[in-house]
C-alpha cells in the first residue's frame, strides 16, 4: 500500500429524491461529487453512486473515513460501512460554514423536507423543519414540472421570463395545484403560473419553517431546489436581502457528512482504520427483506439487511427484540 500523506474522506447523503456523494481531502476541499436520483431504491442508488464515484476518481484512492447523512442515513451507514452517522441539519450547517464562515442563516429545501438553520458566531443556535406538511418542497415542484411537461432543470429559467406572477395559494399542495389548474384554464401563460408557484412556495417556507426566526444575512440557500433560479428570485423579493448559493449547493449534505467523518477521525488520538467497506461495494450483493413480527398487537415491520448473505443489520421493532446493529 502506498503511504500517502493526503487523507481522503467520503460523505454520502441519501434523501428521499436524490443521493449525493462527495469526497474531500484533509483540507476539506471537494475532490469530486456525484448527484443522482434515489428513485425509491436507496440501496441501489448508493451502489450506483459509489460506482460512478469510483469511475471518476479511481479505486486506488484510499478513504480514511466515511460519513452518512440524510433520511436514509442509518441504512446508508450500514451499506457503506460509515464511521459516523449524523443528521442532515448538522451536516448542512458544517458544510455551509466551511464555504462561508460568516454565514448566519442557511435555508435548505430538499425533496421531502425543508429546513432553516440559524447560525451565530459559527455555532448553530436554532433550527426548524417543516412539520406536518410537505408543501413547498422539491417533490411538489417535481410533480408540477412533470404535470406541465417541463423538465425540472428549465423550471426556474422559465419563471425568470415572467413579468407578472399570478397569485397561487401556497399553504397546501392540494390547494396550490387546484389554483394552478384554475389559472391555466383561464389562459394565463405558463411562465406566469410557474413564477406564481415559486413565490407561493417561498412565502409558505418563510411563513411556516421560517416563522419567528431571525433571518440575518449572509443567507445561504442550498439543496436541490436552489438550482431553481425562480425560487432564489422569490426569496430575494420577500426577504429583501441577497441570497448566496454555494457552488456545490446540491451536494452540501454529502460534503457535511465527509467533514463530520474527518472531524470524527481527527478527534480520536490514535489513528484507526475506516469501517468503509471499500470501492467494491457496487459488486457486493445487498439483500433487504422484511417481515411482520406478530409478538404483540404493535405488528412492527422488521427489516433485515444482508451483505453477501451475511446478516449485517436488522431493525424496526419497537421493543428492540429483533435489533442487530450497533
Amino acid at each position: 500500500m502506498t503511504q500517502s500523506v493526503e487523507r481522503y474522506y467520503l460523505g454520502v447523503d441519501v434523501g428521499s429524491i436524490s443521493t449525493n456523494l462527495a469526497v474531500i481531502d484533509q483540507s476539506k476541499e471537494l475532490i469530486d461529487s456525484v448527484y443522482l436520483r434515489t428513485e425509491g431504491r436507496p440501496v441501489n442508488s448508493v451502489q450506483k453512486g459509489i460506482k460512478l464515484m469510483r469511475d471518476k476518481i479511481g479505486e486506488d484512492l484510499d478513504i480514511s473515513g466515511a460519513g452518512s447523512t440524510g433520511s436514509a442515513r442509518k441504512l446508508t451507514g450500514v451499506i457503506v460501512g460509515a464511521d459516523i452517522v449524523k443528521n442532515e441539519i448538522t451536516a448542512h450547517a458544517l458544510a455551509s460554514l466551511h464555504y462561508n464562515p460568516d454565514i448566519q442563516t442557511v435555508m435548505e429545501i430538499g425533496g421531502q423536507d425543508s429546513k432553516i438553520i440559524i447560525i451565530r458566531n459559527s455555532i448553530v443556535v436554532d433550527f426548524a423543519m417543516n412539520t406536518v406538511c410537505a408543501a413547498g418542497t422539491g417533490s411538489f415542484l417535481d410533480m408540477q414540472a412533470s404535470r406541465l411537461d417541463i423538465p425540472i432543470e428549465n423550471f426556474g429559467r422559465l419563471a425568470l421570463k415572467s413579468e407578472n406572477a399570478v397569485s397561487i395559494a401556497g399553504r397546501c399542495t392540494v390547494f396550490a395545484e387546484s389554483d394552478m389548474i384554475h389559472k391555466q384554464q383561464l389562459g394565463h401563460p405558463t411562465e406566469d403560473i410557474i413564477k406564481g408557484l415559486c413565490e407561493a412556495l417561498a412565502r409558505n417556507y418563510l411563513n411556516n419553517v421560517g416563522k419567528g426566526k431571525d433571518i440575518k444575512p449572509p443567507i445561504m440557500f442550498q439543496g436541490g431546489v436552489a438550482a431553481n433560479a425562480g425560487m432564489r428570485e422569490a426569496f430575494e423579493k420577500y426577504l429583501e436581502k441577497e441570497i448566496l448559493i454555494p457552488e456545490y449547493y446540491d451536494v452540501m449534505g454529502a460534503i457535511g457528512a465527509a467533514i463530520l467523518a474527518q472531524e470524527d477521525k481527527e478527534r480520536k488520538k490514535k489513528h484507526t482504520d475506516s469501517k468503509f467497506f471499500g470501492w467494491d461495494i457496487p459488486d457486493m450483493k445487498f439483500n433487504t427483506t422484511g417481515f411482520e413480527c406478530d409478538g404483540c398487537p404493535n405488528i412492527c415491520e422488521i427489516v433485515e439487511i444482508r451483505k453477501n448473505e451475511e446478516l449485517i443489520a436488522r431493525w424496526g421493532s419497537r421493543c428492540g427484540k429483533w435489533d442487530v446493529a450497533d
Partner: peptide, 11 residues
C-alpha cells in the same frame, strides 16, 4: 423526530 432530536442535541 429522530433527526430533530439529534440535531437539537448536537446544537
Amino acid at each position: 423526530l429522530q433527526t430533530r432530536l439529534e440535531a437539537y442535541v448536537d446544537l
